[in-house]
Nucleic acid binder design. Sequence first.
DNA 1: GTTTGGTGCTAAATGCATTTAGCACCGACT
DNA 2: AGTCGGTGCTAAATGCATTTAGCACCAAAC
Lengths: 347, 347
Amino acid sequence: MKVDVSTPKTRRVTLADVAAASGVSKTAVSLILNNRPDSRISEQTAARVRQTANDLGYRPNLAAQSLRFGKTRTLGFISEQVTVTRFASGMITGILRAAKQHDHTVLMAETFGEEPELRQAIAQMSHREVDGLILGFMDSRLRELPGLESEVPVVLVNGHDTQPRTCIMPDEFAAGSTVAHRLQQAAITRVALIGTHRRATLHPESYPSITRRFAGLTQALAAEGIGITGQWELEDWNPSDGFTATRAMLAGNQPPQALICANDRVAMGAYQALAEHGLRPGIDMPVISFDDEDIAAYLRPALTTVRLPYEQMGEKAVELLLGGQLTADEHLVPMPLIERDSLPARR
Amino acid sequence: MKVDVSTPKTRRVTLADVAAASGVSKTAVSLILNNRPDSRISEQTAARVRQTANDLGYRPNLAAQSLRFGKTRTLGFISEQVTVTRFASGMITGILRAAKQHDHTVLMAETFGEEPELRQAIAQMSHREVDGLILGFMDSRLRELPGLESEVPVVLVNGHDTQPRTCIMPDEFAAGSTVAHRLQQAAITRVALIGTHRRATLHPESYPSITRRFAGLTQALAAEGIGITGQWELEDWNPSDGFTATRAMLAGNQPPQALICANDRVAMGAYQALAEHGLRPGIDMPVISFDDEDIAAYLRPALTTVRLPYEQMGEKAVELLLGGQLTADEHLVPMPLIERDSLPARR
DNA sequence: GTTTGGTGCTAAATGCATTTAGCACCGACT
DNA sequence: AGTCGGTGCTAAATGCATTTAGCACCAAAC
């Protein structure tokens, strides 16, 4: 059964239609429907026109409005990798929610991590005359943004430009304190750091997030009087890396009282290595981590971790863009501790 | 240091500018730049105009074009839950990729699973005059779509309407055969099914995907001569559910030779229960599953699973929308088997 | 009586690209 | 000489909402 469900256009109702139907000029209708303050239209006429507009189901044509105003009530979101993890999703959710609040819609593009794609997406978006542009990155590498000479206001989320530019970052440094303080409360005095980042260690200025995460951690641990038994440098932060590192750590002769994992995936690998060693994560060996990906809740015991607040970051980006004056500041968003079951209760 | 990076608009280059700069009429410029076939403009003039347009960096104003054509070269994507899992992300990626190929951009909205939000999003999008609408659902419940009397062509991804409507579904039934056949190749003759779905069993017509998944499975297993030692009904399909069910299964007296898990999260729970029982997943107990979420690759041993092809489904949605005649058919997209390490090699 | 000030409304211009209808000119043919 | 058919181009209309400038009318004020 082939049913054609493509639909022939019925002509839409225009301002002129409403004007004709209510016997006034287009001007009058426009003034009335937009509630222009000093329009001096009689309340009678106004009521009649409003009624007619309503009956006819009139909605102003957005293309026409855009043409007049040079504004589209649209925001562009260009993301490096939507595909990867829950991160971009959180960002999208925050952006969508905030945009809706401001009666804006969101145009999406993805660069798949490629620079030409990024350039093209930026061109595409400014061509579409978005009122603001949000660039979301997945790792916070410093970068030079191509093709951004255009006139669109821009906010970077989770990344920096070599130019001064408005950007939004998670407060990784403070997160270090959060973790150290929490460990101190659990009366832990010796920890192992599973997973520093090789490239970040080599080029700290290129990986501000990771660098701050560990700087905050080291400083706060020292302040709380917690010793570091060792730290393992990794190329990547996937479960298999965490597994290898933890295994190596366990083969050493300096057993820590708890594990700080670079992120949740590393923690997952740590769980696997601990299990292999007959150690129960969270009981025989407390674990705390960063990010709060989906898997954090899936692990057994569920992982206590410091959340990357992507949703709030997305919201904030919209607020800044639509809220008026954009200044080239860096905005830090706090990272909340998500208490689950991999770290003994405070005492 | 406060640097103002909001940017005052520089007037954009219009067709009239190009016309003036090259000393011809707007008509001529339009004809030339759009390569109108029988425009009878001399090649000399054309070359000159093209040069000027290029020098000035002229780009046609899309609002003006939309106004004329009533087309926006924009697709709307309304998703039930971007937040949840990699699924919507895969869909987005596919849609974005295909849209770009057709030189369209994508407007996003999210319903957060609420019907009023869905209705509003649909209204919003048709108001924005999108050229097509993609509705993406996360569970494939049959549903009645609100506020869809409008004139926009629509494709549903992973869901059905009570109206005849174009929709795209994963080929769950065939996936059942894939799994059964693969098990047969591994010489397995008795399996346990971890996780049928309570609500889906009660209302099969409301959960076509789940229903088909198990119908395909049951039928194909029978055809391959593989026996089912038992199946566990679950309320939800999260790791904790899989854990509970597998534990119950292990307490029984009919040990299977392999586990078929309802999805990857269930499989993750099954891994945990097996480990608790001293059984090594994939070695002492082969496991196969459905979906191919991120965790499938993270598990140890990595999980062999049948992928939900969301990316292809997103692409297909765009192709159908932009490819001309839309018919109210259901399109099935094959689900590929992703071989990893939780099922012994074929022989 | 006529200037002043409201009041209630409208014509026309604007933003920009596209398209229809058609003008002006030239060479060729009758 | 007059007509026909090209060729090369243009003026004006169109799509739609908003805004500026201003018209027509009436009452009050001088």
